[in-house]
Design a protein around this nucleic acid. Structure first.
Lengths: 168, 168
DNA sequence: CCTATCATGTAATCCGTTACATGATTAT
DNA sequence: ATAATCATGTAACGGATTACATGATAGG
């Protein structure tokens, strides 16, 4: 049990474990791709290493199945909960970065119409995907995911608008 | 001279060297923070290691000053130019990620009004900064940076709008 | 049965970040 | 002069990405 830095990845794992109760790395992977993975991707290997890391710090507990595969089961601890609470209750003034590959090319002189033509279908597909998720959302989904999805939808609309202005 | 993977960081260095001609790491740092750094941050240490890496692959050439500090001077090579051209002329369908720390907190249950209150001034400041850059831009700035800046401005407006709806 | 694909995991690499350092200028 | 800031660089660390591997399950 040692000091360790908590990264966004850490809080994602903690948040998902809080929501799901006990889970395996593979279960976490499923959860990620159905939820937060829409705007913050994790690689599946991280869902093996990160819980292990968190276990070292006492933020989660680890059990192993006795039977067959001996899969690892993780659960958030009291310490994990309070770290999560603290993080969550401290509003941040820090801003993300655009980091759009397409904007980078544009910046360095790529042909705007060509980029726009490639980007538009991708953004439209993503928007459709988001809207489908929203329309299929059960009533009991909490406000947070709902708002994050809303932000994603608006973001896609904004980019579609931007690229439409540049397409031939 | 060995094979190496070219990352966005690589293309930023190549792009800046193409624009600036010969430059030192510190010169690159200045360029970054005045330009592409607005939507794609690099740490200054990367501007020492990345050109060195690129030199190993033959994408840039390295000279050292004979006098005093013996600073390193980098210049893009023909190979570097063609790699840059190829990257630039191949439109990408890949999308960036939102990766907003504030959205992550929101997703996991933070109080929307609290987050919004913290985010709004930050986004407004960023917007003002962008607008100042735009208004002070000389006529001869090429289309690429101009458009990227425009995207940044719209992006800030979009987030301001989003958070305004959530602020108390 | 055979073969995809899903499920599950480990290991190595490497880039990005952080930390550490010190020489030069400018301002007070 | 001295402090502060700018300029310049190196080194260590760690998290993220990639590559490698194998067991289960379902479809043909």
């Amino acid at each position: 049990m040692q000091e360790l830095r908590l990264t966004p990845t850490s809080y994602i794992v903690l948040g998902l474990l809080e929501f799901a109760g006990e889970s395996t790395p593979y279960g976490l992977k499923q959860l990620v791709s159905a939820s937060v993975g829409n705007f913050w991707t994790l690689h599946h290997a991280q869902l093996y290493t990160e819980p292990e890391r968190l276990a070292k710090g006492g933020y989660v507990s680890e059990k192993r199945e006795r039977a067959g595969r001996r899969r690892r089961l993780y659960e958030i601890t009291a310490k994990g909960r309070s770290a999560l609470d603290e993080w969550r209750s401290e509003p941040t003034t820090s801003l993300g970065e655009l980091r759009e590959p397409a904007l980078l090319k544009l910046f360095f002189g790529a042909d705007p119409a060509a980029i726009a033509t490639a980007q538009l279908p991708a953004h439209r597909a993503k928007l459709a995907e988001y809207e489908a998720i929203r329309d299929g959302m059960p009533e009991n989904v909490p406000e947070g995911p709902r708002l994050a999805l809303e932000a994603g939808i608006r973001n896609e609309r904004h980019f579609i608008d931007f690229w439409e202005n540049l397409a031939g």
